[in-house]
């Protein structure tokens, strides 16, 4: 199509601007972090001397472990439930119900994280407290996060299932496979790269979640030895201390932001390549 150069340059400019937001973020968070990394070295952040930023001890390890455990727990609960729920929406629910189900899940996916956190605080934490005090614990974080991630896993899985070529399903039906047989032997294996990609993407989201987790996990910096102990995640640490942190303490928070950034970028790129794998090959 005939095009004036100015119009195309304007569009190109907005595209490059949008793409460069990520570079800006990497640059600025990196630039804020570099002085302290140079001063104390990367290993100082993973040494087990604890998190006493005012005394120059920046051990992020307990919080990194906290973040990873909570995210892993949530994903382990949400993945099987999410896949089954997506199978229900795609292959078991009658059409009107499937539509309502999809709309409900979309609504649930849009619930603000602070509302999940608030529910955890007024319902879940007192409830766990009756079983094993103090209630604000890793378990509460896992449950709240699993509930948050579940609708997202359902949506990405459903999306992967809709892209299974319909001819495969019809041939399987013609061969006399049962409904569950078609799902278990044909649809799920073919959609698996897409499903996995969604799960990896959502584990990034779980790892990066701040509000819901911060409101229910108790925020004690420690390596937990049971599900009922309070923990603090990297994200919660930033949100809690940023308000009053100055000097090196503030820079240490930027370092933890950089760490989060690197982990989530790795996960997203992984998800991207999983998804790029061709269906059924």
């Amino acid at each position: 199509m005939r095009t004036s150069p100015t119009f195309q340059y304007n569009l190109q400019f907005t595209a490059l601007l949008s793409a460069s937001v990520l570079l800006f973020i990497l640059y600025f968070v990196g630039r804020e972090s570099i002085p302290l990394i140079n001063e104390v070295g990367i290993s100082a952040f993973f040494a087990d001397n604890g998190w006493y930023p005012l005394e120059g001890q920046y051990g992020l390890a307990p919080m990194l472990v906290g973040s990873l455990l909570v995210a892993l727990g949530a994903i382990m609960i949400a993945t099987p439930l999410g896949i089954i729920a997506a199978v229900f929406g795609q292959y078991y629910a009658p059409l009107p119900l499937a539509k309502i189900y999809q709309a409900t899940i979309e609504l649930l996916a849009g619930i603000p994280s602070v509302i999940f956190g608030f529910w955890g605080l007024i319902v879940l934490v007192p409830w766990i407290n009756r079983i094993a005090p103090p209630g604000a614990s890793m378990l509460a974080g896992i449950i709240v996060l699993a509930m948050m991630v579940l609708p997202l896993v359902i949506l990405t899985t459903a999306n992967a299932l809709t892209r299974v070529p319909p001819t495969y399903l019809r041939s399987a039906q013609a061969l006399g496979l049962s409904r569950w047989g078609i799902i278990y032997r044909i649809a799920l294996p073919i959609a698996m790269p897409g499903i996995l990609s969604g799960v990896v993407l959502q584990s990034g989201r779980a790892l990066g979640e701040t509000m819901a987790v911060m409101m229910v996990t108790g925020n004690v910096v420690q390596l937990p030895d049971s599900l009922f102990q309070p923990i603090r995640t990297l994200t919660a640490n930033i949100a809690l201390e940023m308000a009053y942190a100055v000097g090196d303490h503030r820079i240490a928070l930027f370092v933890s932001g950089l760490l989060l950034l690197i982990i989530t970028i790795t996960l997203v790129v992984m998800a991207h390549y999983l998804k790029a794998r061709r269906y059924g090959q």
């Binding site: 968070v29 990066g208 979640e209 994200t235 930033i238 940023m242 932001g257 970028i265 997203v268």
Partner: peptide, 9 residues
């Protein structure tokens, strides 16, 4: 996929 708290930072 970038965590929202990083956008905050």
């Amino acid at each position: 996929g970038v965590p929202s708290i990083v956008f905050g930072l």
